[in-house]
């Protein structure tokens, strides 16, 4: 039994099923990412765990304690970092970090000690007397993290904590977050719509859509073996190519697996295609090649190949080339249900 257990959880807002029957088991010390497009129910799910929303039905257990709706957020042994950081604007960084400890009626000396220790951990000890408005985005994010960490809770809930940072800061912060989790060993539930964060941070990733968890597994699992066409196309940039195999089946393969036949060894077990190139984007490390497979009708969506810089074969728009996919990288999906099937015959 996991540290956080969620069983058949539902949340309905006026006819809308925001969370529609979610079961999750999160191990102690695990970093679980809830990934999905906006409106998929991931934030509502997290807010129910925090006690900020009341489930319509279902059960949440944290550390073996059932979290009935009369258990307020403060009694759930959780800490949360908000997308906006939700720092108290009228309090200094110090008072912000100290606030949960004050609420827990810690002694003044303990508060000072723990705030300073936590601030040192995040490298913000010199900023403690500043107000949030006087801090940069990255500094604010650290103060928010410190405010969560200082309480030493059983579970961290992170609601897109990196989305307000610029790209460079985000990369650094991702690394720091991962290190933090290793150091603290605390269970983390992390909500994001950014697949890079999800893949990079999560021990496991739960992909959600329309209030349901479609697939849960390691980043590799969900990327390589998507449970259905939604997961297949939500993850990856560009997403997995889906082409019509027969009346019942989609054939799926990732763009980076779709390469000129010449880049495979001759004996490799590949599926070969004639690829009619329509247009090529040069991205530095890769070329994105858009086109259609021979035999496909012209109005089909483009198939995309991500050709790494290491493949130096010239590719030009309007030409047709021999492309191929390693047969082990082919995935099959039922055209009616969208779910993954073992092969094209099933």
């Amino acid at each position: 039994m996991g540290y956080v257990e969620i069983r058949d959880l539902h949340k309905t807002f006026a006819e809308v099923h925001a969370v529609d029957g979610v079961d999750l088991s999160i191990e102690e010390g695990e970093f679980l990412v809830l990934l999905g497009p906006s409106g998929c129910g991931k934030t509502t799910l997290m807010r129910m765990i925090a006690g900020l929303e009341t489930p319509t039905s279902g059960e949440i257990v944290i550390g073996g304690e059932p979290m009935d709706e009369d258990i307020p957020p403060r009694s759930r042994d959780i800490a949360m970092v908000f997308q906006s950081y939700a720092l108290y604007p009228h309090k200094t960084a110090f008072s912000n970090i100290a606030f949960p400890l004050e609420a827990a009626h810690k002694t003044r000396s303990e508060i000072i000690e723990r705030v300073q220790a936590t601030a040192a951990m995040f490298g913000i000890a010199h900023l403690l007397q500043r107000y949030p408005r006087q801090l940069s985005g990255g500094e604010r994010q650290r103060v928010a993290l410190a405010r969560a960490v200082v309480r030493n809770p059983g579970v961290f809930l992170f609601d897109e904590p990196l989305s307000n940072l610029d790209a460079r800061q985000r990369t650094t912060a991702r690394v720091e977050l991962k290190q933090l989790q290793r150091k603290l060993g605390t269970t983390i539930i992390y909500v994001t719509h950014d697949q890079v964060e999800a893949m990079g941070l999560g021990d496991r990733v739960a992909v959600m859509n329309h209030g349901r968890v479609l697939q849960i597994g390691t980043p590799r699992d969900v990327y390589d073996d998507p449970a259905d066409t939604f997961v297949a196309t939500f993850l990856g940039s560009p997403p997995m190519n889906l082409v019509e195999l027969n009346e019942a089946t989609w054939l799926g393969f990732r763009p980076e697996r779709f390469l000129p036949r010449a880049s495979f060894v001759a004996a490799a077990d590949v599926a070969a295609f004639r690829f009619l190139v329509r247009h090529v984007e040069y991205l530095g490390s890769d070329r994105l090649v858009y086109g259609r497979l021979d035999g496909e009708s012209a109005d089909e969506k483009d198939v995309i190949a991500t050709v790494p810089v290491t493949v130096d074969q010239p590719i030009a728009a309007g030409e047709t080339y021999d492309f191929a996919v390693d047969r082990r990288a082919l995935r099959y999906f039922d055209r009616r249900s969208g779910s993954s099937s073992s092969d094209g015959t099933g």
């Binding site: 925090a50 006690g51 403060r74 908000f82 939700a86 606030f99 949960p100 809930l157």
Partner: peptide, 17 residues
């Protein structure tokens, strides 16, 4: 902002606080 109120809730503050 709603999240500041919620932050206070999660941070363990009671009504008067």
């Amino acid at each position: 902002p709603q999240d500041i109120r919620e932050a206070a809730l999660v941070d363990g503050a009671g009504f008067w606080r």
